[in-house]
Simulated assay, not measured.
Amino acid sequence: MGSEQTTVLFYSESCWLSCGKVLSSEFELWDEIRIFLEEEGNKLDSKWNNNNVLMKLAYLSDMFQKLNELNLQMQGTNTHFPQLADKITSFTRKLEMGEQKVKEGNIDFF
Rank of each mutant, 00 (worst) to 15 (best):
K66C: 11
D62Q: 09
I107C: 08
N106H: 06
P82C: 13
Y11H: 11
S12Q: 03
S18N: 06
I88W: 06
N106W: 00
K43V: 15
L44S: 11
Q75F: 00
K47R: 10
E13I: 04
M74K: 07
D108L: 13
S46I: 14
R93W: 01
M63P: 00
L23R: 02
G76P: 04
S14M: 13
K21P: 00
L57K: 05
F36D: 08
N51F: 01
W16S: 02
D62F: 10
E104I: 00
T77S: 11
N71I: 10
Y11I: 03
V53D: 03
V22N: 02
D62S: 08
M63F: 05
E26P: 02
G98M: 06
S24A: 14
L37W: 00
L54K: 14
M97R: 08
T77I: 15
S18P: 02
Q65M: 15
Q100W: 05
S90A: 07
K43D: 15
L84P: 04
S12E: 04
Q83Y: 13
F27L: 13
L60Y: 04
E40R: 08
W16K: 06
E38S: 12
P82R: 15
L17T: 05
L67P: 02
E13P: 09
K21T: 09
E69R: 09
V53C: 06
E32Y: 02
S90G: 11
P82M: 14
K66R: 11
S46T: 14
I88C: 04
H80C: 12
E104R: 03
G20Q: 01
L70R: 03
H80G: 08
F64T: 04
F64I: 01
N78S: 11
Y59R: 06
K21C: 07
G20W: 01
N106A: 09
N51V: 05
Q83W: 13
L67V: 07
L37G: 00
L9M: 10
I88Y: 00
D108Y: 07
R34T: 12
A58T: 06
L70G: 02
Q100H: 10
W16M: 04
K87R: 14
S46F: 12
E13G: 12
G76H: 11
L29Q: 15
N50H: 03
V22M: 04
T92S: 06
L17K: 12
D45P: 02
L60H: 02
Q73C: 14
A85N: 10
Q65I: 09
V22A: 07
P82I: 14
E69K: 11
K56A: 13
F64E: 03
L67N: 01
Q65P: 00
G41M: 14
R93L: 10
E39C: 11
C15P: 01
L95M: 06
C19K: 07
K21R: 15
T79S: 10
F91D: 00
R93Q: 09
G76I: 12
S18T: 03
C19Q: 06
M63I: 14
F81L: 14
S25W: 04
L72T: 10
F64K: 13
G41D: 15
Q75H: 07
E28R: 08
H80W: 15
I35W: 08
K43W: 09
S46L: 15
G20N: 03
E96Y: 00
K87L: 06
N49T: 05
